[in-house]
Design a protein around this nucleic acid. Structure first.
Lengths: 91, 91
DNA sequence: GAAATGCATTTAAACTTTTCGATATATCAG
DNA sequence: CTGATATATCGAAAAGTTTAAATGCATTTC
């Protein structure tokens, strides 16, 4: 089950063109770094850091830090839960 | 297929507690009126009108006007498309 | 036709999000 | 140790969203 609060957070996290482009790249590549996200979006580093934080806080994205690099990847369980909720609404 | 732009619009439309409560009520009841949406949310009439407009503009909700009443209902195809997109991301 | 009802629009205030420059911290390379 | 790289945080400006009061406009009811 998914809580209204989690639905709000995850949909809000998706609802931005730069964050969406990061998510699409993650789906395509499996994982990227923060610097990779910067290259994709063309935004400043602090701005990307902020967007990545929103994605991670929403639960949609997982960040594993090794050394100074972060490895970002999708939390597929959360996508599944959200997709399931939306599918159920349309039945 | 669903365009990034449509993903942004629909997820943004969902990402609000009042709009989400309207969507949940629509899923439960099949349809409600603008006045019904007002009762559910407890918001002012212009504010609800604005939220309903966002939902309709996003394509998630359909409004059929008969006389002075509007009948709101879910556009299940759009929910399906969005759910399908999210499901695909998590594969 | 007058009053009431349902919804839309305008306007303006309050609030939130987005953005970037500056700065901080930690790690890695030489 | 020094300089470079990756990321985080702070602060402030700009842009966008949310809200309600006031008003407008059809449509229904009496």
């Amino acid at each position: 089950m998914i809580e209204p609060n989690e639905i709000e957070k995850t949909t809000a996290a998706i609802a931005n063109k730069y964050r969406l482009s990061i998510l699409l790249e993650l789906a395509k590549k499996g994982s990227i770094t923060g610097t990779g996200a910067q290259e994709i979006t063309g935004l400043s580093q602090p701005c990307v850091s902020h967007h990545v934080k929103l994605l991670v806080d929403s639960g949609l994205v997982v960040s594993q830090k090794t050394g100074r690099c972060q490895k970002l990847s999708l939390n597929k369980e959360v996508f599944d839960k959200l997709a399931g909720f939306l599918k159920k609404l349309s039945e």
